[in-house]
Amino acid sequence: MFSARIKQARDLRGIRSQRALGALMGLTKERGSSRINRYETQASGVDLDGLAQLAETLRVPMAFLVAEDEPTADIVLALSQLSPKERKELASRLKEQLATKK
């Protein structure tokens, strides 16, 4: 899933190549392309610092990149576009709704 999320985020931000993403992360052409390729082909994992750098460069939450499924990723991305106040209000409404289902 992680590799698909990187590709999705690159598409979302109009970053056409792995090399371009690497360059935006401050990596050399060769190193950047190689590293992003390893992430996207799942040949290599990423540590938390690398995950944070990817998320910041792609302007997505880290949770989006590691979401366990597509609906969760979509929700995380949508939430990131809300203001803190809007997120808080939505969380309260959701908690109330879930509490009434019990």
Rank of each mutant, 00 (worst) to 15 (best):
E96N: 10
A9G: 08
A9D: 07
A91E: 10
I36D: 00
I6H: 04
K85T: 12
T100G: 07
S34I: 10
K7A: 15
D74Y: 00
Q18D: 13
S33I: 05
R10T: 05
S44L: 11
V46W: 00
Q97S: 15
T41Y: 04
I75K: 07
S34G: 07
E89W: 09
K95V: 13
L54D: 04
Q42F: 09
T41Q: 05
L24Q: 12
I36A: 03
L27V: 03
G26Y: 05
Q42H: 11
Q18A: 13
T100I: 10
L58C: 07
T41A: 01
K7C: 09
V76N: 04
D74F: 06
L90H: 07
L21K: 01
E86M: 09
S44R: 12
E96P: 03
P84R: 09
R87K: 13
R38L: 14
K102D: 13
A23P: 05
Q97A: 15
L79N: 08
A43Y: 10
V76L: 10
Q8L: 13
A78C: 02
E86I: 02
L65Y: 02
S80Q: 00
L48T: 09
G45S: 09
A63R: 06
D49H: 11
D47V: 06
D49P: 08
R19Q: 13
T57E: 08
S83K: 04
G22S: 01
A73H: 01
R87Q: 15
S17F: 10
K85Y: 12
R31Y: 15
G50D: 06
T41L: 05
Q97W: 12
M25N: 06
A4P: 00
I36S: 04
S80Y: 07
M62R: 15
N37T: 11
R38A: 15
I36W: 01
A63G: 01
S92D: 12
I15N: 01
E89F: 00
E56M: 11
F64H: 03
E30G: 15
S34T: 13
L27F: 14
R5Y: 02
D74M: 10
R10S: 05
Q42E: 15
A91C: 06
Q53V: 07
